[in-house]
Simulated scan of single mutants.
Amino acid sequence: MSVSARQLAATACTLGLAPLLLAQALRVRGRTPRLPGAGGPAAGSVPGWGASLRLLVLGSPQWKGSVRRITSRR
């Protein structure tokens, strides 16, 4: 397994920029506002037509506290 000069240069650049990137990441994380969770039910149904539809949303804070399961009925 040989390592090309391009791979070595990319690794060197990445390691050289790591402190700057870490400082930038910590600054952005510290300045980003923390939004409160949404109010309302975490599950519910919406009357309508058509077959039932189940929706699961993972990892999205905008959906926190909102309706995660939608059921439509005829």
Rank of each mutant, 00 (worst) to 15 (best):
V28Q: 13
V57L: 08
A25C: 12
W49P: 09
A38E: 11
S72N: 11
P33T: 02
P33F: 05
G48N: 05
V28W: 09
R69T: 11
G44W: 12
G44M: 11
R6Y: 07
S52K: 09
V67T: 15
I70N: 00
A5L: 10
G59T: 03
P33A: 04
L22H: 10
L22E: 08
M1Y: 10
R6D: 15
A9S: 12
P19F: 05
L58C: 06
W49G: 10
V46Y: 04
G37H: 11
A42R: 14
G30L: 01
P61G: 02
G39Q: 12
S66V: 11
L26P: 00
R6N: 08
R6P: 01
V46E: 04
V67D: 06
S52M: 11
P36Q: 08
P47S: 01
A23S: 14
I70W: 10
V3I: 13
R73N: 08
G48A: 14
G40T: 03
S52I: 11
W63M: 14
G65M: 05
G50M: 00
L35T: 09
L8F: 07
R54C: 03
R74L: 15
P33N: 02
R54T: 10
Q62N: 07
G59E: 04
S60N: 15
R29V: 10
A42Q: 14
A43K: 09
S52D: 13
G44V: 10
R31Y: 01
Q7D: 15
P19W: 04
L8H: 04
T71S: 07
A43I: 12
G40Q: 01
R74I: 12
W63D: 12
P19K: 01
C13Q: 13
L26F: 07
A23H: 09
P33S: 04
V67N: 10
P19N: 04
R69D: 08
V57H: 03
R74F: 13
A51Q: 09
P33G: 03
R6H: 09
G50V: 03
L35I: 07
Q7G: 06
K64T: 14
L58S: 11
P41Y: 04
C13I: 13
V67R: 14
P36V: 08
R54W: 02
A12V: 08
R27M: 05
V3E: 07
A43D: 14
W63I: 06
T71W: 06
S4F: 03
A25R: 15
W49R: 13
G16T: 04
G65K: 07
P41Q: 09
Q24G: 14
A25H: 13
I70Y: 07
W49L: 14
S45P: 01
R31M: 06
S60R: 06
A42T: 15
L17F: 06
L22Q: 11
P41E: 11
L35V: 12
T32V: 02
T32F: 01
T71L: 12
A38Q: 13
R54A: 07
I70R: 07
S45N: 05
S2C: 00
R74A: 15
L17G: 03
G40Y: 05
